[in-house]
Design a protein around this nucleic acid. Sequence first.
RNA 1: GUCCCCAUCGUCUAGCCUGGCCUAGGACGUCGGCCUUUCAAGCCGGCAACACGGGUUCGAAUCCCGUUGGGGACACCA
Length: 483
Amino acid sequence: MTQVRVRFAPSPTGLLHIGGVRTALFNWLFARQQKGVFVLRIEDTDQSRSTDESIQAIIEGMKWVGLDWDEGPYRQTERMDLYRSHAMQLLEKGRAYWCACKAEELDARRKEAEAKGLSPKYDGRCRDRGLTNQAGDAALRFKAPQEGETVVDDLIKGKIVFDNNVQDDLIILRSNGYPTYNFSVVVDDALMNITHVVRGDDHLTNTPRQVPIFQALGFPVPQFGHLPMILGSDKARLSKRHGATSIMAYKDMGYLPDAMVNYLVRLGWSHGDQELFTRQELIEKFSWKNVQTSAAVFNPEKLLWVNEQYIKKSDPKQVAMLLWPHLKQAGLEDTEEYKKEPLASALQYGEPTEWLVNLVVMVRERTKTLLETVHWVRPYFGQTVTFEDEAAKKFLTPAIAPIVGKLLTRFEAFPAFSKQQWEGAFKQLVEEEGVKMGQLAQPVRVALTGRTASPGLFDVMEVLGRDRTLFRLRQGIERAFHT
RNA sequence: GUCCCCAUCGUCUAGCCUGGCCUAGGACGUCGGCCUUUCAAGCCGGCAACACGGGUUCGAAUCCCGUUGGGGACACCA
């Protein structure tokens, strides 16, 4: 059994798209499962649209989402000699010919054909002219078979039959000497010994163009697999108008890489009723036969739910580390608490403090993204609290100040914080005063966090610690007299 | 226009290959309830789908044909 070799071959013409990540993911899963090789190849033969920034964006995105590659990144622009020499081979074999038609002429003829309701394919006028490329401005065309059929046995869609008479002679070398996509992929996939070409559905009709080129070059034809597309809510191909499509935008919005992977893989693949998978499980359970044949609509709400599950169930240390950059972005880096985070500025190293980890555990039940986590975690940074006006106005009133004062006195009597002890004191006071739990709890909550919603009061005190709890209680009482 | 792909709740999907176990299961969302010091979480329950029409068969979501609908491709883009 030969070793499985797969590849992800994006073109660097923009940010790394969610659809691209999913394609990469299926390839990666298959490679890891089969103990094969995952190749990253940058298809940058369109020099007018390719940029180095895009290459960086692809690499950054792949790394963030944890899809590591074994070979590459290769760049097609560094392999020009290979494409040219193989193109010349085809010319020598009589499987290619020079075409002197100008781009504008072809354009005009295509439009004309379309207007007449004919197929817009190349009319083959240079096919038998035996031209040479003396002027150096001709394009080289592949002599595509015009008879018979090309059969593709797709890993996902099954057997597909294409009539060869609908294929035209595609250009393999542009007049500027650069190869075109359909040619460079074939040369690369062949030379890189790619065994399984797995890509988006939109490439399905490229397959019957590419297969004859493999054959003409004398290369074995790889297995093909075509993944269904990802659609927007209106069932049109997913694009920016449906919202964020770049993978890094999701990082910025506070999504976890594992959550993205989990959501994306379930978009078109399933394993019974299971919704959540570890990476190891995905690698073990992945199978082509469970890949969906039809397109899927991207659903941001379900993605949000998956992310929420990961925030809740992942190792809180991991979550805390992923939280660091967001804390900084939120302007919390000047607080004492942030400064205690050992390596928050070099987030790839070290571990978060126990304090932060506990904080994450305390708030994670109520956050769906890391951005929300930041919001919930914010009151615990810094000595003083920022009151939300509405909250203070409603709960920190002169009427309530005395009882909060009594609570403060009792707490002050304790030399250290003890959840059990303090909660007992709190409940006793509530009973003595004959008030409802909430009548005291809400003012205290506002005093401690500045807001009307928070985790359990005594968890809050624990994270705050004795001194800050007392400090904020005093602060709250003071505020109460000023309302 | 030509070629190709696809079709189960609003959405992601299980079931389809190997027809009966399907009065079609799960998940997201949504609606209602329980729990509760707030906000969540959690738990329980409700609503909700086999695109349509023909066949084949004792029996079809499952097999076949057609229709309709959706998507993709037809570049010196990838």
